[in-house]
Design a protein around this nucleic acid. Sequence first.
DNA 1: TTATTAATGGAATTTCCATTCAATTAACAA
DNA 2: TTGTTAATTGAATGGAAATTCCATTAATAA
Lengths: 195, 195
Amino acid sequence: MARPVEFDENKVLTSAMEQFWREGYEASSVQKLLDCTGINRGTLYNSFGDKNTFFKSCVDQYNRLVGKQIANSLKNEKLHAWDAITAYFDEAVINVSNKHRSMGCLLVNSLCESINYDRDMKKVVRASLASIRKALVLRLKEAQKKGKLKKGISVEFAADVLMNCLHGVRVNSRDGKNSKQLSELIRHTVASLKK
Amino acid sequence: MARPVEFDENKVLTSAMEQFWREGYEASSVQKLLDCTGINRGTLYNSFGDKNTFFKSCVDQYNRLVGKQIANSLKNEKLHAWDAITAYFDEAVINVSNKHRSMGCLLVNSLCESINYDRDMKKVVRASLASIRKALVLRLKEAQKKGKLKKGISVEFAADVLMNCLHGVRVNSRDGKNSKQLSELIRHTVASLKK
DNA sequence: TTATTAATGGAATTTCCATTCAATTAACAA
DNA sequence: TTGTTAATTGAATGGAAATTCCATTAATAA
């Protein structure tokens, strides 16, 4: 058989994901990706394809992170609708390391970078954001069914409000706001929807 | 005397500002800046300095745009506090061309790009955002004095909520949301603060 | 007209980027 | 042991990036 891989794929993807997350796609040169992952040039191209393909794999890695946060909160059956929603914001924004919080959100950052003009990447990023919204919608429907959604507010609109808050908070995170300030912004938004 | 300038400084700055705004700092090569402004390589370096310096001049140009929007709304003495605040969002987000709306906000985009890691640029971008917040605070103080701010909400916190909404809306703009959807998000946030 | 001055145009330079490639290495099946 | 296969390595390639430089141009003051 052939020589076995020496690198830890998961660690490589996580390191590269953080590089893209911190500095964006364009400013993350292949050299920087090699430095932060510790792998070699040829290894990168052989095992992960070109920079574009590698970036998409890193977004997938980010999606797995997001997926875990959703699993711990929105999909936690033990929590009531609004508690689950609040728990998601805690998982995604509040109870994360200062390092991660100050980097904002890879998806939002990518949307704001020129990536927007690369159709393929835009599609990948949008799909990820849509999956977050979808999980919120499920819980908002539950809240509505139990009469816990303010009247006059539709589930879809409430989801838009929460996503808008999330985006805002992510920009504010990247601007250096601390978890306490962010937490108050989130609380205010949730209170504006909750009955 | 010397040969007079042939280019229109204001037009050049506006074209370049839109290039940076659309595609970001890194993806905007000097060649693209020459193409969109119509000026020549030597002219750019002679009259505007290097790419970094040029970018900052473009942010200044953007700030003049923001300044006009604030002058037309928040600083309009004929409007009552909340009308002025709503008018600002209209000026900045709703009543702009689809082209501009879909580009989001140069300041937010820059914050989300790696620009964040260039101290000097971060300072410029932050100062601009602070000037918007300052104008909002003035009107929120007025609203509070007239008893038009929901009780339990401080002027500073209300400003944070509005800035958070603005950031969120800017990301959503860049993601392609239309003016009607954005307008509803803004209305909801204003209603959550207004008495 | 002419000297002066700065703008203009674009070739030239240098650096950095993404990507390829051939040589080397390591595991394992036979 | 040996042949096979794929991983690893880093030098090499080619193109694009930012920036510099200088010959040319144009206005005007003298």
